[in-house]
Write a protein that binds this DNA or RNA. Structure first.
Lengths: 266, 266
DNA sequence: CGACCGTTTGAGTGGGGTCAAGGCTCGTGG
DNA sequence: CCACGAGCCTTGACCCCACTCAAACGGTCG
């Protein structure tokens, strides 16, 4: 039962039962893999799409001197890769953080399913866009936030994403990450992760014991994280909301090419 | 003449003259936009794909308190967005760093071109994959590198990308970025960017004056940056090269689902 | 009961941030 | 032709957030 995958893709479009069955068939050959293993090594060719059905995995990069960075999490229902036959090597490895049930879907197979099933096609497309949005958010998160904000932001994102597949409730979720994992994710040392977690605990923003992350007041945590969940909302139509003033430029945005065609906008 | 766009997409696949003409028509309605303007504001709906034909633009995010982070550069020939009608707001703004000539291609139009022209389709797909790879690299760059390494890495990437469209030679390229831009890109303060640049200059790794970036010894710069250009090579087939030992796990990678189907790999 | 892995705590250090002032370059206007 | 101002770059001084090294503590599982 690819429960989480269907639930996740079903957030983007309505999936008719027939399409759900197709998806179920795509991930039929799933296997359990133990924690701390690699599904894919950096530099390998990406010939297939991975679907994580249960458990947590991550994408990571590693330097020769041992420094490691986790660039993304794969939570239940997440896809990794694109449905094309890509000859070039990937610049990431996929590693499991917990036992993981995952399926490897050959690119052409997924592509065929997308072509004969428009809703699957659209869902996979939108999921790829969502993944890009998350990646951008991570870049910015590490780029301009303090340690406390980074971790708070990460926790907000994780809970949101897990809620989307029914793996988190209002009070929190399971968090099977070590403090070392967290450090390699948000770009701070393990020791400092520990101190930052204590700060968050003492501020009453989180509880964290035995892999159980509790968030007593989501609004408060989001506030310290400067967390804005638009990038995780699959079908929001709030496209015109005001987001404050533009600082760098007083200029009006260029709205479309109609008005600007072949002109010079100084 | 969408010279750079065609040159860039032509790196992924062979583009027959007919397809080049189609691309030229897609970006026919291009306009010049002055520096420091927004092409798209954060929170707007992404109804089209932007093609940057000349000049430098960037994607950025901004917090209420004024902190800003540049999450990507759009160089000549770069595309931004996906060819689908996406109802949800984007989590980035597009701003120009120099005067920019850009075209706005409505999603359905590009999609139609992709469907009737397989090589365009494949090129756009691969370009999106390449963009994701760059984004991941940026996340890791900020995550585990020092200030000097971050800037060195960024410079290596920029020169590589510009070379791909013929805008950089062996000795360097034009770099129309302020030190503030650089700081907001790699996540360090403007003052520290300045000091880091001086270090790189004194080490003989770069020259930088009047927006001209010179790299006397690319190999040396790549070494201090721990730069590996696989993620920028469009059609490399070096999928099996050895990338050193896996640190976290001694386990062999899971090669395919055939062997693992329905089994538990401890 | 140990061994191991992850967490916690302390002490000292350093990379990078902040604040502030001065210098360079170029475009503009008198 | 020069004066001036606006950006941008540069430099100095001081400080603090986060890193490193090191040791102790705590669960969990053979």
């Amino acid at each position: 039962m690819p429960h989480h995958l269907i639930r996740k893709l079903g957030r983007y479009v309505h999936l008719p039962p027939e399409d759900e069955a197709v998806l179920a068939r795509l991930v039929h050959e799933a296997a359990w893999i133990g924690p701390g293993r690699d599904l894919l090594q950096e530099g390998a060719a990406a010939k297939a799409v991975w679907a994580v059905l249960e458990g947590w995995a991550c994408l990571y990069k590693q330097l020769e001197d041992g420094r490691r960075h986790i660039t993304a999490y794969l939570l239940p229902g997440d896809l990794c890769g694109a449905p094309i036959d890509c000859p070039s090597p990937v610049n990431y490895a996929i590693g499991t953080l917990t036992p993981v049930r995952a399926a490897r879907i050959p690119g052409p197979i997924l592509l065929a399913a997308m072509e004969s099933h428009p809703s699957i096609r659209r869902a996979v497309w939108l999921d790829m866009l969502a993944t890009s949005a998350i990646q951008r958010e991570w870049t910015a998160n590490i780029g301009f936030r303090t340690a406390r904000e980074r971790i708070a932001h990460l926790f907000c994102e994780i809970v949101s994403r897990l809620q989307a597949v029914g793996l988190a409730d209002e009070t929190g979720c399971l968090l099977p990450l070590t403090q070392e994992d967290l450090g390699e994710t948000v770009g701070i040392s393990t020791v400092h992760v520990n101190r930052t977690l204590q700060e968050l605990r003492q501020a009453g923003l989180i509880t964290l014991r035995r892999q159980r992350l509790g968030i007593p007041d989501v609004a408060a945590l989001r506030k310290v994280a400067c967390f804005d969940d638009v990038y995780l909302r699959p079908l929001s139509s709030g496209s015109d909301r005001d987001r404050g003033t533009v600082r760098r430029s007083e200029a009006e945005p260029v709205v479309g090419s109609e008005a600007a065609t072949q002109n010079i906008i100084a």
